[in-house]
């Protein structure tokens, strides 16, 4: 049986799609058969971030409506053989995600994969509810600022009440906090909530901290999941995140402000 993971946040623009792409790639890099699904019907970003936008013929909605077979809609990743992308439609809206249709597709994917990563749209409407419904685990992507924390809190409440696990009275969805766009310098200057603040407010186990970095933008513009940006802090942070998810112990990195070296200070580097 595959494990289903929803990447969600409530608030938009916090890094859900970036995280979905990097996290799914990270699982695949470690040898797990993984599929990542775009639930953001009508906006369709995941295929861009994964760099497969020109290979989309059939999509998730076609499969839900029986207009295509699942195998026709799944796109194999450019670099990883065991990673597939199920893109969504740009021309439909979220009402096209029927509960029965999604359940049928999920059941079929369960047979084929080890991990199903669901990239949720922002908000708390149909799209987001469908994305989280089947989840076994949730990665709640949060930026270190008050409104993002508030929305994450809201989505955690919905996860506890409206997921399939909650409805069936099973063990609750496993909750993970992923803090993204974290800048220790700005925390120190009091412009951002600190890691401790966010943990204290949300009280969810921390899965990782992804530093604020221009590399993210470069990666998504090139259609490369950030975890492939070799040597960057972002790639390392996502690798750590995947490792922790799989049960490894990894120390937190990139949460302290880097001391500039003696020479840098001397020469104004």
């Amino acid at each position: 049986m595959a494990q289903t993971i929803v990447v969600t946040s409530g608030k938009g623009g916090v890094g859900k799609t970036t995280t979905s792409a990097a996290f799914a790639s990270g699982l695949a890099l470690r040898g797990h058969r993984t599929v990542v699904i775009d639930f953001d019907v009508g906006l369709r970003n995941l295929d861009l971030v994964m760099g497969c936008e020109r290979r989309v013929v059939y999509d998730f909605i076609n499969v839900i409506h029986g207009e295509a077979r699942l195998q026709q809609a799944l796109i194999r990743d450019r670099t990883l053989d065991n990673l597939y992308i199920l893109p969504t439609s740009q021309t439909r809206d979220k009402e096209a995600l029927s509960a029965e249709g999604v359940a049928r597709v999920m059941a079929e994917l369960q047979q084929e994969f080890d991990y199903i990563v669901c990239d949720s749209p922002a908000g708390i409407e149909t799209g987001a509810l469908r994305a989280l419904y089947h989840a076994d685990a949730a990665i709640v992507v949060t930026n270190p600022e008050v409104s993002s924390v508030r929305d994450s809190d809201r989505i955690l409440g919905i996860l506890a009440a409206r997921s399939k696990r909650a409805e069936e009275g099973r063990e609750p969805v496993q909750e993970h906090l992923l803090l993204t766009r974290y800048s220790p310098k700005r925390v120190q200057e009091g412009e951002m909530l600190s890691l401790e603040d966010v943990k204290e407010l949300l009280r969810v186990p921390l899965l990782g901290v992804i530093p604020e970095s221009p590399v993210i933008l470069q990666a998504s513009n090139q259609g490369i999941p950030a975890i492939h940006m070799k040597g960057s802090d972002v790639a390392q942070a996502y690798e750590d995140t995947v490792a922790r998810f799989l049960g490894e112990e990894r120390p937190l990195r990139f949460v302290q402000q880097e001391k500039s070296s003696f020479f840098k200070r001397l020469f104004g580097g």
Binding site: R150, D151, D153, R154, L156, G157, I158, A160, A161, L201, L202, R203
Partner: peptide, 27 residues
């Protein structure tokens, strides 16, 4: 036992209410 989160509401009808975790903003 669990934090009451933004948007959630709990009413103890005809009772006292005991909460061991946080009542978050918006709850």
């Amino acid at each position: 036992e669990h934090p009451l989160r933004s948007g959630q509401r709990h009413y103890a009808r005809g009772q006292d209410l005991i909460c061991l975790a946080t009542v978050n903003a918006g709850a």
